[in-house]
Write a protein that binds this DNA or RNA. Structure first.
Lengths: 350, 350
DNA sequence: ACGATGGCAGAAATCGATTTCACCGTCAAT
DNA sequence: ATTGACGGTGAAATCGATTTCTGCCATCGT
């Protein structure tokens, strides 16, 4: 199935002109509200921040604000307070359903606590990541939830500034900060052992980039299972790919074209799982012809029962937990940093 | 396949304490840089904004900034400039791959132009949407790309303030602003006609909420095809659901359980398509047993060829185009508003 | 009756960058 | 030689809200 995004377009003329004679009205400020209500700006501020103000003035301020359509300027507020009610969520791939579920979890918790979330997509690129972390800092954001692009993120500036950070999905490499993780090593091992239990002997592994912790840990789990169970072991059966659909596809091709191809494969994330399945479908080798286990849930509707073993991940719950932790920190909790490991669960896709 | 997110977790104790004696260092400011370089703050600002400064002082300023680790404070800058290099992208469902693709397009363009994107998820909720629009305004963001949650978003404040807005995917309801759309009506009609061409006579329609433009337009397209081709027509065959997987699942169940069920169905978005397919799979009625056409690309790797007709959408391209348009507006383009309609394309999933 | 306490409110400082205004040299044009 | 223009620079105003500092007035206790 090929879908081409057509580059052509047509423009529909619209003739009525917008009634905007370039007025660009300024927003009403606290001073204008104060003037209209006959009080000082300080009083207006106090009304909006729940301080003690006489009922009479309070009412007048509210009325004035109402008729002027006043909204407090967040930028000024943030500048003065050195703090804003925004948290940054930095993730490596916004098109990966795992991360969007996670984001959803973060959002729900943050929303409920009156915080907004800004989502920053790093595309597994250190430079983009570092730019977004810079922004979080210089925009006085309240905190950061980070799924790091690699193993050497620079969090010094944020930490010096006392901004809370929670690492999620991927560990905090060298920083002693809160983290919410799944057990990649155990998951990789369990998935591989499940394949072995299904009778497969030559089990390969497709994992992510070498500098991404979850990639190496999952591969380690695979290796532990393979050597622990004394299965056949061939170094060509371990491939470092890129955690993307294409990468999984290419890696799988490489594997099936080996002189002695594996009879099963453990794939270290969901998208590469999709890629690998695509290749197997092309070659008519869909599971159970070749054994497959995937770390993560497949973004798949599988009309035919597919014999794939999954390590199911609590993506949303990961986000919820990370957000909870972060909000606690923001509200002054200063226990020593914790690492919370959520359990994964082996599921046979049926 | 059931995947349960286990609510249990265990905490791994970590003992080493963070070496943060609660110093919370302030960031260095332009004043400190100025003092260290022996110049005025104004000069420091000029150095960082490419104004005329003598080579000597410029060098001294740069050195001072370097050693102090100075980063300009974005909040202060934004307050003064009444403008920031951030654009808001407001979408109704971050878990829908259509919108994440779109977001990806927006991001790529914005990044390249030096803008950051903050992603706001409204969950099809007017209140959340209005809160995010408020934030965009009071945070002095440069512009907004909006896929509206319904047909009565309030953009008055943003427009009064002169902030550019581009509507994407869903029209700008009553505002004369730029829009980037696909032709929902034509797509709905074409999809339905394709089903008719495959020989189906009793074609149902599952669409989205009544107050979402794309939902009603796609249903209109379906109706036009059904009446145009004089197919059998039953009002019970039009169901307004919610654009989500579950909604599609329930709606499809409702349809198959009708006394005279349809022999085909046109589903107005990708997620509901997944839900509908899930139900059909449960009942052993997968296409082509029941005809199906879906508006949008299925977030699916389908291992067995599925006889589903797709109206393929240029999601990423929609985002790219909207971002281009917005950036032009931000840079002062003031042509009359344009509506750009990208073409969709009928694709037979094979 | 007098000092003490506390609630309420305004003037002014503050957050950190940008920019206007004014001033000083220097150099080219008249 | 005088005028004008222009590049470089600093002092101070500015963006809009919060908060400290201060003072006023009323209430309370003794």
């Amino acid at each position: 199935m090929e879908c081409v995004n057509p580059p052509t377009f047509r423009t529909m003329g619209i003739t009525r002109r917008q009634g905007r004679p370039d007025v660009r009205k300024r927003m009403p400020t606290i001073y204008e509200v104060a003037a209209r209500a006959g009080v000082s700006p300080a009083t207006v501020s106090r009304v909006f921040n729940g301080q003690n103000v006489s009922a009479d003035k309070s009412r007048r301020v509210r009325e004035a604000a109402e008729t002027l359509g006043f909204t407090p300027n967040r930028v000024a507020r943030t500048l003065r307070l050195q703090n804003s009610e925004v948290i940054a969520l930095v993730i490596p791939d916004i098109e990966n359903p795992f991360f969007t579920s996670l984001a959803r979890g973060v959002e729900d918790v943050a929303q409920a606590a009156g915080y907004s979330v800004v989502l920053c997509n790093t595309d597994e690129d250190h430079e983009k990541e570092s730019r977004y972390l810079d922004i979080a800092l210089s925009a006085n954001m309240a905190g950061v939830i980070l799924a790091a692009a690699g193993d050497h993120s620079d969090l010094d500036a944020l930490i010096r500034r006392g901004r809370p950070i929670v690492a999620v999905d991927r560990g905090p490499h060298g920083y002693d900060i809160d983290a919410v993780l799944v057990d990649s090593r155990a998951g990789g091992r369990a998935a591989t052992e499940a394949l072995a239990a299904q009778g497969f002997r030559r089990i390969a592994c497709i994992t992510g980039p070498r500098d991404v912790e979850t990639a190496t840990l999952r591969a380690e789990g695979w290796r532990a299972a393979v050597t622990g169970l004394r299965l056949e072991h061939d170094e060509q059966h371990l491939i470092y790919a890129d955690f993307r659909i294409d990468g999984g596809h290419k890696a799988m091709r490489q594997l099936v074209e080996l002189p002695t191809p594996p009879d099963a494969v453990f794939v270290a994330n969901n998208l590469m799982g999709v890629g690998a399945l695509q290749l197997l479908a092309e070659r008519g080798l869909l599971p159970p012809a070749v054994g497959m286990a995937v770390f993560g849930d497949l973004p798949i509707f599988a009309p035919t029962p597919l014999a794939v073993t999954l390590v199911s991940l609590p993506a949303r719950h990961l986000g919820v937990t990370a957000a909870d932790l972060l909000l606690k920190r923001i509200n002054g909790d200063d226990q020593p940093p914790r690492t919370i490991v959520l359990r994964n669960q082996i599921v046979a896709s049926s």
